[in-house]
Amino acid sequence: MSTQVRPGWLEKPKPVTQVAKVLALLVVVALVCVPFLVILSTSLASQREVVANGGWVLWPGEPTLQAYRDIFDGGIVTHALGVSAGVTVVGTLLSLACTVTLAYSLSRPGVLGGKPVLLLILFTFLFPPGMIPNFLLVKELGLLDSYASLILPVLINVFNLVVLRGFFQSIPEELFEAAKLDGASDLRVLWSIVLPLSKAALAVVGLFYAVAYWNSWFYASLFMESDHWPLQQVLRTYVVAGVGLTDTTTGEASVNAPQTIQMAVLVIATVPILLVYPFLQKYFTKGVLTGAIKS
C-alpha cells in the first residue's frame, strides 16, 4: 500500500528556516523604517545637533518643532499643501469618473466605434506625447498657470483604463441581461450593478490616481508659476536646490539648518499617503489578487 507524500510547502518548517525567515523580515523592516526614522528625527532635531552629527540625526536629544513652525509660518508650504490636496481630491474624482465611464463603454460588446477608440487609446500608451507637444497644447488651450493643467493632461491613465475594462468584462453577462429585461438603462446598470461589484478594483485604481496626483511635480514645473506650485515641486526645490524658507510676512530667512527644513517638508509630503493607505489596504489587496486571478 503506497503512502501519499505531502508537498514540501505543507510540512512544518524547520527551526533554522523559521529563524532565517524572521531575520530576513527584520532586515526588510529595518531597511524600510530606519530611513524614515532618520528623516523624522532630523526634522525634530535642533540646529546644533544637526551640525554636530553632519546633517543627519538618528535620535534627537533635544526634540523641537521649530522646523515645522518655520514651515507653516512662512506660508509657502501651507499653500502648496492646500494645492496638492485640492488637485489630488478633484483630480482623483474626475479621473475615476472618466475612467469608469470610458472603461464600461469599451467593455460592452457591440458599442459603435469601440474597437477603433480602444486601439487609439492603446496607441497613446505605446507612443506617449512628448514634453513639447504637451506644453504647446496646454498653451493653446489657455491653461498655463492654472490648476487644470495639472489634471487634464493626465486625466485618464491607459493602464488603469485597461484594468477596469478587463474587470468589467469579467462580470457575468447574465446580470446585464437580467437588468435589461427589467428595463434598466446603461447608466442604471453601471450605477446599481457594475460599481457595487467593482469596489476592490475601484479602490486600487483610485489609490493609483491619488498617489500619482499627490507625487506629481513635473507638470507643475512646466505649466505653473512658483506661487502656485504643489507640495512635491516645493519639496523638490528645497531638497535639490537646498534653499531655505523665507517668511512671507517679515521677509526674514529661516534660522534653522537647511537639512531640518528639507526633512520636515519631506515628512509633511509623506504622511498623508501613509494615513490614507491603511483604510484602503483591504480593498487594495483584494483588488490586486482578483486582477491576478482573473487575468
Rank of each mutant, 00 (worst) to 15 (best):
V111P: 04
V111H: 02
V111C: 00
L112R: 12
L112K: 07
G113P: 04
G114N: 10
K115T: 15
P116G: 02
V117G: 00
L118M: 15
L118G: 06
L119E: 05
L120D: 00
I121K: 01
L122P: 09
L122C: 14
F123W: 11
F125I: 09
F125M: 15
F127Y: 15
F127G: 02
P128T: 12
P128Q: 14
P128A: 14
P129L: 11
G130F: 13
M131R: 07
M131A: 14
I132W: 00
P133E: 05
P133Q: 09
P133S: 09
N134A: 02
N134R: 09
N134V: 06
N134K: 10
F135E: 08
F135L: 14
L136D: 00
L136E: 09
L136W: 06
L136S: 10
L137S: 06
V138G: 09
K139S: 11
L141I: 08
L141V: 09
L144V: 13
L144H: 05
S146L: 00
Y147L: 04
A148N: 03
A148R: 08
A148H: 08
L152I: 12
L152F: 12
P153V: 11
V154A: 13
L155I: 14
I156A: 08
I156C: 10
I156M: 04
I156G: 10
N157W: 09
N157G: 15
V158L: 07
V158S: 04
F159I: 10
N160R: 12
N160L: 01
N160C: 15
V162S: 14
L164G: 03
R165T: 11
R165E: 08
R165H: 05
R165F: 02
R165K: 15
F168S: 02
F168H: 00
F168W: 01
Q169H: 03
S170D: 11
S170W: 11
P172W: 06
E173K: 11
E173F: 10
L175K: 02
L175E: 06
L175G: 05
F176L: 06
F176E: 13
E177T: 09
A179Y: 06
A179H: 04
K180M: 12
K180F: 13
D182K: 12
D182Y: 07
A184Y: 07
A184L: 13
S185Y: 00
L187A: 02
V189R: 15
L190Y: 03
S192P: 04
I193S: 05
I193R: 09
P196F: 08
L197P: 00
L197R: 09
L197V: 01
S198E: 00
S198H: 01
K199G: 13
K199A: 11
L202T: 07
L202I: 11
A203C: 05
A203I: 04
V204D: 00
